[in-house]
Nucleic acid binder design. Structure first.
Lengths: 400, 400
DNA sequence: TGGGTTTATTAAAGAGTAAAAATAATTCGC
DNA sequence: GCGAATTATTTTTACTCTTTAATAAACCCA
């Protein structure tokens, strides 16, 4: 049971974080606007901004004259030179590495072959990260944090509990990297990480309550509630793939029957196509067939879309989020899934609740997992900044 | 969009509230133990306790000698003389009123006939409340807060959006009472309120993440996440009754098919019995038949229990709570529902998640809703105490 | 009286807020 | 054209509030 002390340091950390994100998402904002937006007093802002500037996190540029009277504003922005964050998305067959500045701007992108052997995957990630750093001509000491996102159950303390696709169980994947990289590392389930990225960098920045639904081979979910990721008491909340939508229905990989992901996942769609004798074996082929107007494929997708809508309706009835974000292969297939899904949603979600829910598609694409890693790293960076922010005001007070 | 300022006053409110609840649940605790339990510094505690004592909220009794050396501890407890909280549970046919001291101890209990006319219901509640106050010989000025719990959708600002059982829509039920009672009033959905009561007064005091599932005529839910009630962006989260567990299944009152409450609610059970020609028309009759070993009733309940387990499995798969609490008529029928429900749970919930979830029955009984009202009133009292706590330290500083 | 235990007080450090002051441009008056 | 007034933004100062650590006080028992 964590009980963070409620004290001044916490206040400062919260307010600093809030200002950081506002600046990040509104580059060029002035201190006065910042005060208006955040509700924090201008004096407090002055102090915090000065600290952030001294730490090299925020940059201040005096604006060009506007032509109007008064002292010109200075434009605040996150200083890209502060250092880099790395996001690592681990999949069975590929490891995606993204390097970003601390404002989340992507500046390097890399895919290396994956491995089911943890040690090999770790080494591949490490080597890939080194390459990425070379790509931007950055020294390893400029790496401020690393976030790792992988498909599987991850405990609250970042241990891999079970990752069926990777064949990993009870593994501290980050430990080895932490040693060799000498910088903070966080590890999280890829869908939860992607939800975080959606909140920090995506289209749902101002949405405090949304559900991220990601189709990979199966279906995962991330609950973002009250402005923060909800992990649940064991870190397993949001695993919606095995919600039962058809009692006694199709056999699922989990051993159960009628699971959500046995009907609406990429794997389920491909399996259904195969069962109907269709040659498509991956999402690209499915999309190509759709564009050619392949009736079989369109029918299968409509069917899957209807089940998708049914599952989402349950999710919406329970959580009443403001938005549902679709990611992964669900996002790619969305054009052909959504019509049926929207119908099923209208039919099965309570009207009063359905009315206020948007169903949108993530724009993150394949970057969802590694950008989730960036989000994790950024969160870590703000939770526990390497330079002590908010230190005592320099004692250079002039006396009258 | 609420954005509470993060400042010293907030810290004090949070810490004061924490101490209040610890004292409430551990009457007789000493300041030192309080510090140990809460993690708050003894000095801070000293100040806060002095304020609470001066406000008449906490009482300090110097303990009898313990036989051991040292200054005797003083026992802290919530001062029952501080005043009363009222909880009002509104149902179509009855209004339940509970009076409690601010530590949540029930001291009066009353049921008056209900009404579908808002004005009549309001007047009945007001009159009942006056009677309850007379029962404990208390003046109306000692009433510190009122919480109202009713079956229906309630917006975040306490407006009744839709209460089908009462036939109310878009109604500010509390407004009239607020005028005549001249004390703070909060209004909330009864299941959410009951979940709050379960957290503050029930068996789930130390559980930060649980789901409260209440069977009335339908089925409602309350999500208690991260130590607080989750209302969702519109206050409609947790309305699990219309989760679809059987696609295209039984017609539900909502117009949809296959809803949770069309299979596992009191109304559904009674309807099924009627369809099978059984004479039981209420829960009492059902329970009596069960005790007589009535096969028909037991079979219907087992069937309903299986569907209950199926619905709970979905809830658990999504939320991964630490506990599911059953209340209302589900609690009364629990002995005959649970075996089948537990089986369905084992079958349909992911093992990794199922393993850490308890399924328990609320001990609140019929008091759930009005005690929910008490919980609301207490929360209101602590959020916005009538006497300003944490006032400036008395200026009686002695100088050396 | 002295030892031990618990509570209360005090001083220090840090946070936020409000008001005043400083800063830096433009605009006005001549 | 040039200085003073104006305007808008940021910083400083003064103050309150909070936590925390160190210190003092209160109290019982031996």
């Amino acid at each position: 049971m964590t009980k963070p002390r409620v004290n001044s340091a916490l206040i400062r950390r919260i307010n600093t974080g809030r200002l950081f994100h506002i600046i990040r998402q509104n580059a060029g904002i002035s201190q006065q606007q910042l005060s208006h937006v955040s509700g924090i007093d201008p004096a407090t802002i002055s102090i915090i901004i000065n600290n952030l500037e001294a730490a090299g996190i925020v940059r201040r540029v005096i604006d060009a004259p506007t032509g109007r009277a008064g002292r010109p504003t200075s434009a605040l922005s996150i200083d890209a030179r502060a250092g880099y964050l790395a996001g690592i998305g681990i999949e069975p067959d590929a490891i995606r590495i993204v390097l970003a500045t601390i404002d989340g701007a992507r500046c390097a992108d890399l895919i290396v072959p994956g491995s089911l052997d943890p040690e090999a995957a770790r080494e591949a990630a490490r080597a890939g990260l080194a390459s990425a750093l070379r790509m931007v001509r950055a020294r390893r000491s400029t790496l401020l944090g690393v976030g790792i996102a992988l498909p599987g159950l991850v405990s609250l303390d970042g241990q891999v509990v079970f990752a069926p696709n990777l064949g990993w169980r009870d593994l501290d994947f980050a430990a080895g990297l932490r040693q060799s990289l000498k910088c903070p590392i966080r590890l999280e389930n890829d869908v939860k990480a992607a939800a975080l990225a959606e909140h920090l960098f995506g289209a749902s920045r101002d949405i405090t309550d949304f559900v991220y639904v990601m189709g990979r081979s199966g279906i995962g979910g991330g609950l973002h509630l009250m402005g923060e990721l909800y992990r649940g008491p064991h870190g397993l909340a949001g695993e919606i793939g095995h919600m039962k939508i058809v009692p006694g229905g199709r056999l699922c990989g989990c051993g159960g029957h009628g699971c959500f992901e046995a009907y609406a996942s990429e794997r389920a769609i491909l399996a259904e196509l195969a069962a109907q004798g269709h040659p498509a074996r991956d999402v690209d082929a499915v999309l190509a067939a759709c564009r050619d107007g392949d009736k079989t494929v369109l029918a299968v997708l409509a069917e899957a879309g209807a089940h998708l809508g049914l599952g989402l309706a349950n999710l919406i009835n329970i959580m009443s989020p403001r938005r549902v974000v679709l990611g992964g292969s669900l996002a790619r297939l969305a054009p052909f899934l959504l019509p049926a899904a929207a119908r099923a949603l209208d039919e099965n979600a309570l009207a009063a609740i359905r009315h206020d829910v948007e169903l949108v598609v993530s724009v993150m694409g394949d970057h969802a997992a590694p950008m989730g890693g960036i989000a994790l790293a950024l969160q870590q960076f703000l939770d526990d900044p390497p330079v002590r922010l908010g230190h005592p005001r320099e004692s250079g007070r002039r006396t009258k």
